[in-house]
């Protein structure tokens, strides 16, 4: 049904999306907690910064990444020197681009679910001798877990579809940076690819539906649990 090349494209897409999510989860959790629980100077600016990828043209993000993380970029050169990591025109770069683009979605879902945890429960935990850090791991995170997982799934789905920033930052290299949307785009540029396009589109739809179904299932389960359906 699917050719080996197509399987490789899907595998690469999943790898890029997974890497992007793994990369952004800790940072997104931190940002979400800061936005939900702390007040500090410049919070509005920080909030805007987090949301920027949502409203900027993806090409702009891709270009900014290219300038910063390209071979000659400030951060790109430093990363290559100290850790031997190259991002430009590599699948890791695609993962970074997808992570940046999915970040606001992830933070948003996490922030909402952290805000839904009663601060009084956290206060109760602190009176029982738990530090802020322990309160986060033992009370805040477990109680906001459904929302956190939904945020992860949303960002994952978003990463699978990332196009503009990816193609600008790491180009469209088959076998290295050519993810599903980029492959579909390439096929539309060449004659006679209609059947392949349809197959890849079907795969995209299937993956997106699975992510949405999973998040819906988690939401329902969480609601049932909070209504107290047994132990």
């Amino acid at each position: 049904m699917l050719s080996n090349d197509e399987f490789a494209i899907i595998a690469l897409s999943l790898r890029v999306a997974a890497a992007s999510v793994v990369l952004s989860v800790p940072l997104a959790l931190g940002c979400a907690w800061l936005l939900a629980r702390r007040s500090f100077h410049g919070k509005t600016l920080f909030d805007a910064l987090v949301h920027l990828p949502l409203v900027l043209p993806p090409v702009v993000i891709g270009y900014a990444l290219l300038v910063l993380f390209g071979r000659q970029g400030v951060l790109g050169a430093a990363l290559a020197d100290c850790c031997g990591i190259t991002l430009a025109f590599r699948w890791t770069g695609a993962a970074l681009a997808a992570a940046v683009m999915g970040f606001p979605l992830m933070v948003r879902a996490m922030r909402l679910s952290i805000e839904a945890v009663s601060p009084r429960l956290e206060a109760a935990a602190r009176t029982l001798g738990a530090s802020r850090w322990r309160v986060f791991w033992t009370v805040t995170l477990p109680l906001s877990l459904p929302g956190v997982v939904v945020g992860v799934l949303l960002a994952f789905a978003r990463s699978l579809g990332e196009f503009g920033a990816t193609i600008t930052f790491v180009s469209n290299i088959p076998g290295e940076t050519q993810t599903l949307p980029l492959a579909i785009y390439s096929l539309t540029q060449s004659p006679g690819g209609d059947a392949a396009i349809l197959r890849l589109c079907a795969v995209s739809v299937a993956l997106a539906l699975m992510a949405l179904a999973a998040s819906e299932w988690i939401n329902r389960r969480a609601t049932r649990q909070q209504r107290g359906g047994g132990s």
Binding site: S118, R120, L121, A123, A124, A125, R126, T127, L128, G129, A130, S131, T138, V139, P142, L143, Q226, S231
Partner: peptide
């Protein structure tokens, strides 16, 4: 800090941790 004061606080509405069972709630502190 709150956690080093050594107070036990019984709130009006209990404020038990909903994700832990009674035994785990009791052992939390």
């Amino acid at each position: 800090p709150i956690e080093r004061r050594g107070v036990g606080y019984v709130f009006q509405d209990g404020l038990l941790f909903p994700h832990l069972n009674v035994g785990e709630n009791l052992r939390y502190g």
